[in-house]
């Protein structure tokens, strides 16, 4: 029996008349990897902005564990509702070491009082070490984030998101700009996160989507076009048509 963690109902947002996301229904099962694909401008990142509170919806509900979090403050959504997000492109603390990057992201020490009482205890060290191993950057822990390769920077940010111990992890194009080998490694990393965490992943690379997806939702012009397993979606004639139409799309 699977259980729904996130349920989006009739969600819409428009920016001065342009409907970036309109009447989207979506449900994400706990512990699964839900991939969202769609041509450029389909509203994928906007949808993520809505979930994380960066953008306020004009209509609709975002039920998270049964609570409507639509329009709540981003900081609150991150800490109280435990939704972590990796942004498009590496977004890390450049002139700090890999270790410090993870350490800052650790959950539970964000207030000034906690920042003063924080100690690098064995438990904390163990946790950071585990995350560094998960993202395969343990040997690079003393390097500055800016010295890492592009792919490693992406992993570092995934690590930072894990450090927040989120229930739901949102990854915005985690494999963008990576080599094939790196992309595959990223896929394995993401798959290991499923189960303990629930994941929403936005991605263009179809091999990567096939590697990781439990469910795929196709967005097109702000609306849900199709949903199902990768194999089902791939066969959907409408999806094929949209992707062929879109000259920027990667196609199947």
């Amino acid at each position: 029996m699977s259980e729904t963690l996130l349920k989006i109902e009739n969600l819409s947002v428009s920016f001065s008349g342009f409907h970036a996301v309109s009447e989207v229904d979506l449900s994400v099962e706990r512990g699964k990897i839900h991939v969202i694909i769609g041509p450029n401008g389909a509203g994928k990142s906007t949808l993520m902005d809505l979930i994380t509170g960066k953008t306020k919806p004009t209509e609709g509900k975002i039920l998270y564990n049964g609570t409507d979090i639509a329009g709540k403050d981003p900081g609150m959504i991150a800490s109280k509702y435990k939704i972590g997000r990796k942004f498009q492109g590496p977004n890390v603390f450049d002139n700090m070491t890999v270790y410090e990057n993870i350490e800052i992201a650790l959950k539970g020490y964000t207030s000034i009082r906690k920042a003063f009482t924080y100690r690098r205890t064995e438990k904390v060290k163990e946790k950071i070490k585990k995350i560094l191993n998960q993202i395969q950057l343990y040997d690079q822990r003393d390097m500055m984030a800016t010295e890492l390769a592009h792919g490693q920077r992406q992993w570092l940010e995934i690590g930072m998101v894990i450090a927040q111990s989120p229930e739901l992890i949102i990854l915005d194009e985690p494999a963008a700009g990576m080599t094939d080998v790196e992309t595959y490694k990223t896929g394995e990393m993401v798959k290991q996160l499923a189960g303990k965490h629930t994941l929403i992943v936005i991605e263009h690379d179809m091999d990567f989507v096939e590697q990781i997806a439990d469910t795929v939702t196709v967005l097109h012009q702000g609306k849900v076009l199709a949903e199902g397993s990768f194999a089902e979606v791939k066969k959907n004639p409408e999806v094929v048509r949209v992707y062929l139409q879109d000259e920027n799309g990667e196609g199947f």
């Binding site: 994380t52 900081g75 991150a78 977004n91 603390f93 450049d94 700090m96 992201a105 927040q164």
Partner: peptide, 12 residues
């Protein structure tokens, strides 16, 4: 380094 990112971790 990155104030916006920090706030997304829940820091004020």
């Amino acid at each position: 380094e990155n104030e916006a990112r920090l706030e997304f971790f829940g820091y004020s």
